[in-house]
Design a protein around this nucleic acid. Structure first.
Lengths: 334, 334
DNA sequence: CTGTTAGCGCCTTCAA
DNA sequence: TTGAAGGCGCTAACAG
């Protein structure tokens, strides 16, 4: 088990000094005579040298890493965002380390602390927004001191936090959707509202309800997941659909769960109940019927978040991702 | 913009030596008097100290990072695996850096080189298996020299490479599935076979065909993606379904695309054609009809891959993930 | 059990 | 343009 060749080995092999080797391999400004440079490059190639990034980071005082926090990487919402972040990072020559919060506020905070140890160039938070004040406070504090030491932070869809954020117009999108559904002739709405303490969910539900001419027939809370959509819909079904002719799930994965619940109960969609979601995850096209939803360019949002974190705008800037209602077969005119 | 507090700062603040502070904060063989330890801990807390992981890595000669390579993090197959890897990593106190190969062999190789710079404890490859000999050779070489310098490697579903791997019984699963479909009464098979140069795809297609009593009616090649499944199915439709009464897509995302194509063309599933896939991604339950497939515990596979890489088995060991045919409504008895 | 002191691999002044 | 030398933050002998 030979050790990794070090820059020193390369220098010796090339018959130059450490400094010259360093400059030839990575040196930004300094110029190295072509002959030396070639010798160094050849030596590096021959030895299979790869710069030790940790050592570089220590010496330079800055790393080429960005950290991404997501609630659940298997969730299409987050994996789309992650795809955007990692593509943008690759374009910048940055590597991304990813951490999963499992929707646990305390875990999220401790992960941020841990991640700070990497001294990443930036931390991008795509996790959930907690409404709990304490957690919020410590998270903000942690992030703030990260910034205090030269770090950059950006958030996705958490616009009440004092950092640059890529904002998704949850309220606007939900209200628009409500309007369109009403125009299509729907009257009795059920809401799968997600977690009560999650701002994204709450904003969407509240705005949707606010844009309705009459109060909704039913509101069910639960997790932000496919399974919660499924069980939430089951609850609605079991308590009698009655007047209910449309269900709005505050995100697509929940809507997908709801569709499956309806199918499993033999309730025709959209004939008996229509279903709509939010996010326009890729899967929305492949369920039956295709899902009406509010489109958000998730990958672009991820890329934008990284750009925002890396860019040098005056701090609390904000990028608004456009939202757009997409009517599909799950909500035909009634 | 204050710099990050260093261990030295903490030591000074606590009135102890650097070494003591180090031992109190990270020392493996813990032997620091309680009073000192508390002082150090308090000082660290007060200063908001976080160990510089890069510096630790340099000093220790070993990092606490693992690298994961996937083809496409937005693909449910890979995001499930990533979830497994990152959960297992978190349990070990390791952070995972993720790189996306975009199914590009050369990019994959250069990413491996780049990742080696991190000196990760292990590299887990969940990407595609290339059949091209040259690429294969350089990839193996790169990995081998990584191992030569003390690194660990594991693969998922690439069992022809000389490294510890979590193997998925592609051939066995496909053959089993074929048998069950034949038993169910299907006779005219179409195959959405995926890329010709991808071993996983080829193994599945070949084994499936091999287990059939008669040659398939049609075989269509294409990418390993949802869209390729869609267009592949469209091709089958446009060239006339004829005898064809069942389609096997070599992975679920393709099968999902195929279902959408059939739906868009108004062809009833499963009445006119049945559809089956492979992987049992979560979405398989939520399409209509629910998808018959071969189940692979993807998250477990990811976790197993990390364990394999970290474990100290004699090198080229292999973990076989069980596969299991799951018959759902997309392939009822005919 | 604690402090001193070399490194770890690399970058970057500073002279030459 | 090159090389020598100090330093980045931390760990690990090695004495005390």
């Amino acid at each position: 088990m030979a050790a990794n060749p070090t820059l020193y080995d390369v220098a010796r092999e090339a018959g130059v000094s450490l400094a010259t080797a360093s400059r030839a391999l990575n040196g930004s400004t300094r110029v190295v005579k072509a002959e030396y440079r070639d010798r160094v490059l050849a030596a590096a190639e021959r030895l299979g040298y790869t710069a030790n990034l940790s050592a570089q980071a220590v010496a330079r005082g800055t790393s080429s890493t960005v950290a991404l926090l997501v609630s659940d990487i298997a969730d299409p919402y987050f994996s789309s965002i992650a795809a955007g972040v990692s593509r943008a990072a690759a374009a910048e020559g940055l590597t991304v380390t990813i951490a999963v919060t499992e929707r646990d506020a305390e875990l999220e905070i401790s992960l941020v602390r841990m991640l700070r140890g990497q001294r990443p160039r930036a931390i991008v938070l795509a996790g959930s927004r907690f409404i709990d004040e304490d957690d919020r406070g410590t998270l903000v504090g942690e992030l703030q001191s990260f910034i205090g030491t030269g770090g950059r932070v950006s958030l996705i869809s958490q616009d009440e936090l004092p950092f640059p954020t890529v904002s998704i117009d949850n309220s606007g999108g939900a209200a628009l959707l409500a309007g369109e559904l009403v125009d299509l002739g729907y009257r009795g709405f059920g809401i799968l509202a997600g977690p009560e303490n999650l701002a994204t969910a709450r904003d969407r539900a509240t705005a949707f309800v606010g844009a309705l001419p009459h109060p909704p027939v039913a509101v069910v809370h639960g997790a932000f997941s496919r399974d919660a959509g499924y069980t939430g819909m089951m609850q609605l079904i079991d308590s009698g659909l009655g007047e209910l002719d449309a269900v709005f799930a505050v995100n697509d994965v929940m809507a997908v769960g709801a569709l499956s619940a309806l199918r499993d109960r033999g309730i025709p969609v959209p004939d008996r109940v229509a279903v709509a979601g939010f996010d326009d995850i890729p899967m929305a096209l492949d369920v039956t019927p295709p899902l009406t939803t509010v489109r958000v360019e998730l990958e672009a949002a991820g890329a934008a978040a990284l750009a925002l974190a890396l860019g040098d705008e005056p701090s609390p800037s904000i990028v608004r991702m456009p939202v757009e209602v997409v009517i599909r077969a799950s909500t035909p005119p009634r």
